[in-house]
């Protein structure tokens, strides 16, 4: 009971902070927060593969990017395309891509999986770059209308207003994160972890390995696509260098690793740290990537369990000491 109560208190306090946040920090940091939240969701979808299933997606940007492009193209070409379907289109596109690739991806693991996803990621990057009549090439797709949040007869909220968009994006992302968190707690989620530890045994316990892997891939791809769709609405511009390039594939890996692969919330923490770091770095130097690279190296060298891992270790040590004394 007490546990339940404190959980409710956390939720309420958290939501209140999120609600008043834009009023306190102003428009610039409101937008920084949206960026953080999008990448938090995106990094969590990567961790569904890396931390939970034990395979490294080196081309995760393809799911994010395909989601972003689909939403942008739908908004560009279909007049009056509504807001929520725009998100769904992104999610569906990510899921479809994962579904199409899954017969090949479930066959491999380890380095081969990383390389295969890298290859497909690059393939889609090059395709988007070359087929400019659809994708606009390097310039990308931009300037499409941002639909309002519309419930006929009830409300119509203008999403070009950045504060409104903040509330919308944060709400969608919280829902998505909650769904994914719940997903990891289901019996199926426990199977996915089993695949990470011992794929062969999963098969010998009567679960079809390839299906298990494919479903997790599709879930990951779908939500990465939704993250891309929110990005498309947020930036009002989708270009190959922004959503499909290899940097976009590295970012969530870095976030997940910094935060800690072993925890659902690790990648969210990682996204927060990187966005904070980026903000601070920008005041000193333009060389964001240098700092990112150094962080990468330092984390691998000194905190392989990530920040969340470090905290857990510290906590364990602390409580252990208390017990002893």
């Amino acid at each position: 009971m007490r546990n339940n109560l404190s959980r409710w208190i956390y939720w309420v306090v958290g939501l209140v902070i999120l609600a008043i946040y834009p009023q306190v920090v102003g428009i610039y940091y409101t937008n920084v927060f949206v960026g953080f939240a999008i990448f938090a969701l995106y990094a969590v979808t990567l961790n569904l593969l890396l931390g939970y299933m034990g395979v490294l997606s080196f081309g995760h940007a393809m799911f994010f990017g395909v989601g972003a492009y689909s939403t942008a193209l739908a908004l560009t070409h279909i007049q009056g395309f509504p807001l929520l379907p725009a998100l769904l289109v992104g999610g569906l596109a990510g899921a479809m891509l994962a579904l199409i690739l899954s017969p090949l991806l479930v066959r491999v693991s380890g380095t081969a999986f990383a390389m295969l996803t890298l290859a497909f990621g690059q393939l889609i990057f090059v395709l988007a770059l070359k087929y400019r009549e659809v994708t606009g090439g390097e310039d990308g797709v931009g300037g499409y209308p941002t639909p309002s949040f519309n419930i006929p007869g009830v409300v119509s909220i203008d999403m070009t207003d950045q504060i409104n968009f903040y509330y919308f994006a944060v709400a969608v992302i919280i829902v998505c994160l909650w769904v994914l968190w719940f997903y990891t707690k289901t019996p199926f989620g426990s199977l996915v972890v089993g695949v990470r530890d011992n794929a062969m045994r999963i098969d010998y316990l009567g679960f079809k390995l390839s299906h298990t892997k494919a479903v997790n891939l599709i879930v990951s791809g779908c939500f990465a696509g939704i993250a891309g769709a929110i990005y498309a609405l947020f930036q009002n511009l989708v270009s190959t260098l922004g959503v499909l390039d290899i940097g976009t594939s590295f970012a969530p890996i870095l976030m997940a690793y910094i935060g800690g692969l072993g925890s659902f919330f690790g990648p969210i923490v990682g996204s927060g740290i990187l966005h904070l770091l980026e903000d601070v770095t920008f005041r000193i130097t333009e060389q964001i990537e240098l700092v990112n690279g150094l962080v990468f190296i330092l984390v691998v060298l000194y905190a392989p369990m990530g920040i969340v891992g470090l905290l857990r270790q510290a906590k364990a040590k602390w409580f252990h000491k208390e017990k002893v004394s």
Partner: peptide, 9 residues
């Protein structure tokens, strides 16, 4: 991942 960091640096 270390080599990724190295590449950026």
């Amino acid at each position: 991942l270390l080599t990724v960091g190295l590449m950026l640096v």
